[in-house]
Write a protein that binds this DNA or RNA. Sequence first.
DNA 1: TGTACATCAGTGAACGCGCGTTCACTGATGTAC
DNA 2: TGTACATCAGTGAACGCGCGTTCACTGATGTAC
Lengths: 215, 215
Amino acid sequence: MGGAEAVGGRKARSAETEAALKEAAKRVFARSGYLNAKITDITTEAGRAAGSFYSHFTGKEQLLEQLLLDMLAEGDEQVEDPAHSADFTDPAAVRWHVAAYWRFVTANREVILALQQAAMVDERFAERLRLLMEPTLHDIADHLEHIRRAGGRLPGDPLVVATAMAALMSQFAVTWLLGGAPQGRELGEREAVDTLTAFIVHGITGPPPGPPGTA
Amino acid sequence: MGGAEAVGGRKARSAETEAALKEAAKRVFARSGYLNAKITDITTEAGRAAGSFYSHFTGKEQLLEQLLLDMLAEGDEQVEDPAHSADFTDPAAVRWHVAAYWRFVTANREVILALQQAAMVDERFAERLRLLMEPTLHDIADHLEHIRRAGGRLPGDPLVVATAMAALMSQFAVTWLLGGAPQGRELGEREAVDTLTAFIVHGITGPPPGPPGTA
DNA sequence: TGTACATCAGTGAACGCGCGTTCACTGATGTAC
DNA sequence: TGTACATCAGTGAACGCGCGTTCACTGATGTAC
């Protein structure tokens, strides 16, 4: 070995810088937005020289790509708590999914916001996000189809209702977690999850009039 | 007068060019997106020289600002059909609002998309959009408050539920009208309005269990 | 263990591309007499 | 109605700013003998 004071050798130093750049990027994205962020903003925030950036990434897009992969890797570790139901007529099942989504967005706000911005400008990121969402969308649609077969009434075609649910959750999260919330009103996780869950449970369940299915 | 072949004089000619630039801008925004659109893309599309742009606008932002004002002016002409109810327990009232919104977005997709993109990069546009939404949001919240006072149960605080409704409608519209819809599935106005209406009506109305309020 | 050389992470000044913006010019429209 | 001049919309080549990207250089880490 021989490293005088530095903890590790060259590899470790390189990894440190790469991590510093990624963390700096998240902070800069959160502050100025992905599209406004300059490469030198990121390197300055990380306390490195401009040229250093290109030893680790080919450009801003690839850096974001890496952040996306990191996010998904972490997400996969957490998700899939075995003990959760997929029966959306059970409010607890809906709540579980809503809460998981809310926590995911909270934990990854910078990256998610950056991805949305990138998708507005770069068709490749837009397509990427669409492909990421698709399985989830069909998964939800399947659950809804199940409700319908069990005699429940849906507000429309399962796939369309699934996009409505996704739209509701994602934009609601944008409003309260990413964008500027209306005039300083704050929203805790508890209230957010409660409201979304109730809205969705009633929204996808058939209309109240008619013989009430006693829960 | 004396104009040889041109229909009008200088003012008319100027107005023509300005209109041509605005229309060209909408087409370019729809094709490449607001953020990717270059000034010369717009002038070329309009069949004018690059310098011409600055006789009419100070920059891309001000052009978008004009398109926004045009959109709002047209919107004000149409909206406020006197014969519509504000009682959201009446599905017909909800449907009326949803349909109006859907038609508005359909008619103004390019500008709305451009505004969303601009808001991602320019805080002034973001603030502008927030201020545009606020009255509508409080209006909806008031209607919901009314339901609550009449004994109905809401999924949460009226203002929060109002943002949920707005989130649902706007992102659903983005999904099906502006962004790429999932794998080629098409959605007609009828189906869109039906699904949204049903989802919202059930979503904001209290839970089925308990004494059913006979509609 | 010690010396000489190779490799590599990081540096930061400089380069150059893309594009917004300007401006001297043109030809047509409007005004004065 | 006719002539001389003023104004203005539009032109497009050229300028220059901002920023991404490069590259010769430095000093430290690793390797050979």
